[in-house]
Structures are given as structure tokens and as C-alpha cells.
Simulated scan of single mutants.
Amino acid sequence: MSVRSGYEAGVPCWVDLSTSDVRAAVRFYSEIFGWTAEMIDDPAAGGYGQFVYNGKKVAGVGPIMGEGMPPVWNVYVATDDAATVADRVKNAGGTVVVEPMQVFEEGTMAVFQASDGSFFSVWQAGNHSGAELVNEPGAFCWNELVTRDPQAATTFYTTVFPWTPRVQQMDGMTYTEWLTGDKSIAGMIEMSPNYPEGTPSHWSTYFAVADLDATVAKAGSLGATVLIDSMDSPPGRFGMLMDPQGAAFSVIQLNETA
């Protein structure tokens, strides 16, 4: 289902961009995805805003809050109790980076670092339940953990969330799907040697697009770095980009299904 009004616990529900130049990022993503940005006027929001597509909230954007942190797309997993997740993170060997905090009447968020080094967030919904549109052009459709330690990541994330790993071989590599019940909700892959030395484990977000080649070309013309212009995968052809401020993300032209 593409239009959403809520998410089960354990399902990625929101993504947002932390960037060094919010105005430039808004221009860039508006050009390639057709998004508009609705910025929150309240100074307490810290310059945060939301991207909207066809009247639906699809992602967030705001300035980098931590000194020295790189521009990045952040992934939020839905939860019914952020405080309980924080306890699980500590017990599983992770770190609480931002303790559960209420965001106006919108909900409660927290930020963590997993034992494999990857950062992630949780969202306990209030008035804001998460992305209102997913899995179609103009919205995020997949989140994938790129990790240097799949074993540590598996132990950690299955302790923190109600996830079950389904491991499979794809084109000579091992790929893990995270399941909640029988639903595939995210993925994991071991970081390849092609990544620059020192690249930490991280979550990567995929956005669906109607035309991969046109999107990659447009992004390149706007100053993005094209890391992968086109690669085949079972769900469809995808590319990997780095926006002009340095945040990496992927775009995918999903295969048509009957």
C-alpha cells in the first residue's frame, strides 16, 4: 500500500536529511523528485521542514546539529515505546546518542548507534505518523544497512527490533532481508571493498523514480556525484548518488508488477 496513515512497530516509517545547506538541498531535491518543502516557522524546530509530494509528506530536511557530522539521510523505525527501545539498545551493546525526546505534539524520537557502528533513529508517533506515501515514484521505498560486521549487526538489530533475518545468495553475494512477521521491511549487505577506506557502517535510503536514467542525468547536471549510474537488481534498476552537499542516497526504477 502506497498511501500510509500509520506503521507497525519495527517498520521504517520516516527518513530525513541532515545537511550543511538546507536551501541548496531543497532546490536540488525539488528538481529531481518534484518535491516542495514546507519549513516549520517555529524557531524551536531548529530550521526543520518537510518535503511534500502530491500533497503527501514524504521526508524531512534540516541542518546538521552535531559539529563535524557529515550530511546524511537518516532512517527512523516506528516504535510504540522509544524508552523501551533505548533500554534494548543499551543491553545489546549500542549507544544512546539522543535520549527519547518529545517533538512538540508530533511524536517522540531518539537516536542510537548500533554495535556495528551504524546510526539509526526511532519514532513514536503522536500527530505525525511518518511518511504518508511510500513505495512509488517520489517516495522512499527501501532502507538498507551497509555494514562492516553483518554478524554483529544481526545480533544487535534482532535484539532491539522484532526482526527476523532471511539470508539469501544474490549474484555471488550474501544479502539479508529483515522481516517483521512475513513482511520484508529492510535489507542488509556487507560493505564491499569498493567503498572508500574508513567508510563506517551506515543505513542507505532508496527513493523510487519513474525514469532512472533521466533522474541520474538530472541529478548529475545539478551537481550530484554519480557513484553508480545503473545496476540491475531483482526489484529493478538502481543508481547511487551523492548530493552536492555530500549526502548519499539511491534511486530505483521499480519493476512493474501485475
Rank of each mutant, 00 (worst) to 15 (best):
A152D: 13
A152P: 05
A153S: 10
T154E: 15
T155I: 09
T155G: 15
T155E: 13
F156E: 00
F156R: 03
F156K: 10
F156I: 07
Y157D: 08
T158W: 03
T159F: 12
T159Y: 09
T159N: 14
F161W: 11
F161D: 13
P162C: 13
P162W: 07
W163V: 13
W163D: 10
T164Q: 12
T164S: 13
T164I: 14
P165L: 13
P165E: 14
P165Q: 09
R166V: 15
R166A: 14
Q169G: 12
M170Q: 15
M170N: 14
M170P: 01
D171H: 14
G172A: 04
T174R: 14
T174W: 04
Y175A: 07
T176E: 04
W178R: 02
L179G: 00
L179V: 03
L179W: 00
T180W: 00
G181V: 07
D182I: 02
K183T: 06
K183Y: 00
K183A: 06
S184D: 05
S184E: 02
I185R: 00
I185W: 01
I185Y: 03
A186T: 03
G187C: 03
M188Q: 07
E190S: 10
E190V: 04
M191T: 07
M191S: 11
S192F: 08
S192V: 03
P193Q: 04
Y195A: 15
G198C: 05
T199G: 08
T199P: 09
P200K: 05
S201M: 11
S201I: 14
H202F: 12
H202G: 08
W203S: 08
W203R: 11
S204Q: 12
S204T: 13
T205Q: 09
Y206L: 07
A208Y: 09
A208M: 06
A208G: 07
A208H: 11
A208P: 05
V209S: 10
A210K: 10
D211S: 10
L212K: 05
L212G: 02
D213A: 14
T215M: 04
A217Y: 00
A217K: 09
K218A: 15
K218M: 13
K218V: 09
K218C: 13
K218S: 14
A219N: 05
A219Q: 07
G220S: 06
G220V: 02
S221C: 02
S221K: 12
L222A: 10
A224K: 12
A224T: 10
A224C: 11
T225R: 14
